[in-house]
Amino acid sequence: MTINELYENARTGNKSSEEQLFQTLSVRFRALVVQKVKDYDDCNDIVQNAIVAISKEYREIEITTSFSAWAYKVLQNRILKYFNSNQRKTSNEESLLQFYVPPGNFKPDPTLESRLVGCLKKISQAGLKYARILNLFYQGYSTEDVCAKLDIVPNHSYVILSRARSMLRLCLDKGEIK
């Protein structure tokens, strides 16, 4: 069932649908928040706040769009509020992703860790810049900084990043990079 269908069922009092709805929302919200907020714990905080707000209102509020659109707006507001209250720039403004925090309560998956390390090694053998760009990008460096460090132009950086990601995905999937 889609979240809009789960919402319809939950509104009519179906507890199972309600639980499933909020579980699904939590997972999806988190995946989106991680794209913008680099603090592992803050991600969870934002997701929690959004979920609380939705659970308070979803039965009573007159949703003029779809439930998913409304829920997305709630999440967006929480993210914007977070950036606003921390006086930080959103990922859409210049100098995006300018902060970094330690993993906090992050619990690694040992299997994935090992595979990832192995793949990064393979990728760096194919070209160190591929491994470097993956690292820089996901650590939150801006495109400008990445370009400066790798001595490349922005368009080139996207090409390299795109290839690097493809290699990483292929490696994680098949164990090879070509």
Binding site: V34, K38, Y40, L97, Q98, F99, Y100, P102, P103, G104, F106, P108, D109, L112, E113, L116, V117, L120, K121, S124, L128, A131, R132, L134, N135, L136, Y138, Q139, G140, Y141, S142, D145, K149, L168, L172
Partner: peptide, 27 residues
């Protein structure tokens, strides 16, 4: 995968070895 690159100490250590300390340092 993205979260592991970002948050896993083990992955970050590997990156240090591969690319040097500078790039393992957060922005």
């Amino acid at each position: 995968t993205v979260e592991h690159i970002r948050f896993s100490p083990k992955v970050r250590d590997a990156i240090v070895q591969l690319a040097g300390q500078e790039e393992a340092t957060p922005a």
